[in-house]
Amino acid sequence: MMRPAIEIQSLFFAYGEVTVLEQIDLRVPEGEFLGIVGPNAGGKSTLLKLILGLIEPRRGTIRVLGRPPRKARKLMGYVPQYPAFSRDFPVTVEQVVLMGRLGAGRLAGGYSHHDREIARRVMGEAEVLDLARRPIGQLSGGQLQRVLVARALACEPRILLLDEPTANIDMRMESELFDLLKKLNERMTILVVSHDIAFISGYVQRVACINHTLVCHQTGEIDAQAIGELYGGEVKMVHHHH
């Protein structure tokens, strides 16, 4: 069996006294397109932050490509839900995308020619190349989202994690973004948090429902048994209501 991209065992996490996640087991094979859904405050974003190593679990283990999350950070690309920056920050699209190359080259000085080439390539892929010199304050919500995807791609990740990438954009752009993700999935593992299970079902192979605990569903019922066997029988089929 292929080495899993992400393997989580008996994970428990709490903010202070408030339990957010308990008894989470999840195995994501390389190349999977996994949707993560669940109610607000159910722990979806927390799970992504744990996988990225931004926070540490209280109990349980997380392995990303066989390593602890902090050691695997550079193999992951992350698209946050609410960008932590202000929209009027004086920075261009290209400069933002280049930030994905940080940590790859030398410590001091500017970006290398190689970094700039990669940035141009991923901007092309995310269809924001013509916006390269635009300040981010002049972008629409959908354009900014694509820029953030390009920034994550500039990391040349093996795993792409997206937190509600379509929360602030309209339906048409949502489809375009997921078409792009579908294409990217041919070469990398993708985890996408969403509130819209009906919509993502058309794209992802499996849905993880998180509400403090986690239950996985196959999106195509016909293939369920076959894929279930492929995953080593770890996937449970459970009917529940959203």
Partner: peptide, 22 residues
Amino acid sequence: AAFYRQFLAVSFDEEFARLRGV
């Protein structure tokens, strides 16, 4: 001048800079 990239990244988006090993 030497650390322009890092300063820009840290002041723009601290969380992302941390993820890139800055």
